[in-house]
């Protein structure tokens, strides 16, 4: 198994209680950020580490690829933050299980999940954050 490890000092800002504001700092570019599809057929089996950091969102993840499929995503974080943990857990399930909901549209956007997905993408493409 090839293990690619980046030295990352993941500072998890924590979307904690007070003093966090999201109106425009980073938010606009976060919302417009595109999550790219990664071509898994080109990836060897292994555990890939990556992170995504923008202003106050930081996610560090370890992605396990086997037979060109993502089989596990583990969130590594230095600071235990409840909200981030909740987001990570839910987003992990969504990516692996590819839940589909039989509805026409969903009202309610999230930004934190994108940061997490970007961390996964960075892990698999070897992008330094």
């Amino acid at each position: 198994m090839l293990r690619i490890v980046w030295i990352v000092l993941g500072v998890l800002f924590g979307l904690a209680v007070l003093g966090f504001f999201a109106a425009s700092i980073g938010l606009k570019s976060m919302k417009e950020m595109i999550i790219n599809e990664v071509d898994l057929s080109k990836l060897e089996d292994g555990v890939y580490t990556g992170r995504f950091h923008k202003v106050r969102w930081t996610y560090e993840v370890e992605v396990t690829v086997e037979n060109h499929k993502i089989v596990e995503i583990v969130t590594i974080s230095k600071t235990d933050d409840e909200h981030s943990r909740r987001v990570s857990a839910g987003a992990t399930e969504a990516i692996i299980a590819n839940q589909s909901v039989q509805i026409d549209a969903v009202s309610g956007a999230t930004v934190s999940t994108k940061a997490f997905q970007k961390a996964v993408e960075n892990a698999l493409t070897g992008t330094e954050d």
Partner: peptide, 11 residues
């Protein structure tokens, strides 16, 4: 139209 759970993530 689905309504997101405010305590969890997008899906």
């Amino acid at each position: 139209v689905g309504i997101t759970n405010p305590f969890s993530c997008e899906d």
